[in-house]
Design a protein around this nucleic acid. Structure first.
Lengths: 188, 188
DNA sequence: CAGAATATGTAGCGATTGCTACAATGTCTG
DNA sequence: CAGACATTGTAGCAATCGCTACATATTCTG
C-alpha cells in the first residue's frame, strides 16, 4: 500500500480553505462546506483550529500572505514614466478578471474590519502595508516625492476601486482625469 | 380602550428595521431579532415583505433614502474657499462619531455590491450618485472645474475613508498632503 | 511489546435559520 | 347582518449552525 497518509495540518489545510473562500466568500462560509472543500470534516477543522473564529483569523493571515507573495512576483519589467501611467497600470491590473475573486473578498475584509470582527483588521492592514511598499517600488524613477506620491496614488486607487464596485467607474474616471493630471509632478 | 391599532405596514416598519440594522449589521441580521426590534414577529415580516431577500432590498432602498435626505439637510452655511478645505470639511463630517454606524454599514453594502447580492448595488449606486451631486454644490465658488473637481475629491474621499477603516489613516493623510495640495486648482 | 499521545470517524445536541400551515381575529363592503 | 378580505398569533418543519461526547484507529515512546 504505497498510499502515504495525507497527514493534514493547518498548513496543508489553509491553501484549500483559501481557495474555497475566494470563490464563495468568507462571512457566509460554514464549517461543513469548508471541510468538504478541504477534503476533511468539520470535526477535524475544529480539531486543528480550535474554533471557527480562530480558523477565520488564521485563514485571513494566510490570504494576506498569498497577497504578499503575489505582489512580490508582480514587479513590472520597466518602470512607468509618469504618475498617471503608474496609476493606470496598477488599476488595470487590479481590474483584471483574474483578480476579481480576490477583489470581491477584499471588500468583505474591509467590511469586517469596519465592524471589528477579530482578525479582519490585521489582515487588511497587512495587505495595505504590503501594497504600499510595493507601490513605492513602482513609482517613476524621476518622481520628486516617491513616498508621498505612492500614498497619493494609493488613496486615489482605492477610491477608484470602490467607486467601480458600486457602478461608478465613470465618476472615478472623470475624477482622475480632472485631478491626477493636474497633480502629476513627474518631470516630462 | 383608547389604544388604537398600531396598523403596521412596510412604511411604518422600515424605520425601526433600519435603526436595528444600523446598530447590528445587515448581512448577519435574521428575521426574529429584526422583528423584535420592530415590535412585531417574523411571521409578519414575511407577510409584509414576502421574503427576506425582498425585505433586505426594501430596507436598502429605505436607507439610501435616509442618506439622501440627510445630505439635503447638511448643506454648509458657507462654501469653502479651496478644494483642500472642501475635502477636509467633508472628511471631518464623514469621520464624525455620529456617522460611524452608518459608515460600518456602508462597507457592508459595498461588500454586498461587489458580491452581487440583490439590492446592494442599486442602493450603493444611489447613495454615491446623491453624494456626488451634493458634493458638487459644496465646491468652492471660484473652482475652474466644479464637476471634475467634485469627482476628483470624491475619489480621494472614498479612498481616504477605506484606508481609514483598515488602519491606514496615516497613509491617506500623507497621500492627500502630497497630492491634493499640488492639484488644488482653486485660485487663491 | 505496552502504554501514551495523536489523529480521525460517527453520531448527535441544542440553537437558530427562513418560512409555512392553520386557525383565529378583526374590518370593510354588500 | 353576511360574507369577503385583510391582518395576526400559534406552532412547527426541515435545514443548517458551531461544536462535543465517545469510540476507534494510528503512531510514537519507553
Amino acid at each position: 500500500m504505497p498510499s502515504s497518509k495525507p497527514q493534514m495540518s493547518k498548513e496543508t489545510l489553509l491553501p484549500k480553505l483559501a481557495a474555497h473562500v475566494l470563490n464563495h466568500g468568507l462571512g457566509g462560509a460554514s464549517l461543513r462546506p469548508l471541510a468538504e472543500a478541504a477534503g476533511t470534516s468539520d470535526r477535524m477543522l475544529i480539531y486543528h483550529f480550535g474554533n471557527k473564529e480562530q480558523l477565520v483569523a488564521d485563514l485571513l493571515e494566510h490570504i494576506a500572505g498569498i497577497y504578499s507573495t503575489a505582489l512580490d512576483a508582480a514587479l513590472a519589467a520597466e518602470r512607468p514614466t509618469s504618475r498617471k501611467e503608474c496609476f493606470e497600470r496598477i488599476l488595470e491590473q487590479g481590474q483584471h478578471p483574474m483578480m476579481q475573486p480576490f477583489m470581491v473578498l477584499w471588500w468583505e475584509i474591509v467590511a469586517g474590519s469596519a465592524r471589528g470582527i477579530p482578525g479582519y483588521r490585521e489582515a487588511a492592514d497587512a495587505m495595505m502595508t504590503k501594497q504600499l511598499a510595493w507601490l513605492e517600488t513602482q513609482m517613476p524613477e524621476n518622481d520628486p516625492d516617491p513616498a508621498g506620491g505612492a500614498r497619493y496614488l494609493m488613496t486615489l486607487l482605492e477610491g477608484t476601486l470602490m467607486l467601480g464596485v458600486v457602478g461608478h467607474t465613470h465618476t472615478a474616471n472623470a475624477g482622475i482625469e480632472a485631478g491626477l493630471l493636474a497633480s502629476d509632478l513627474t518631470p516630462s
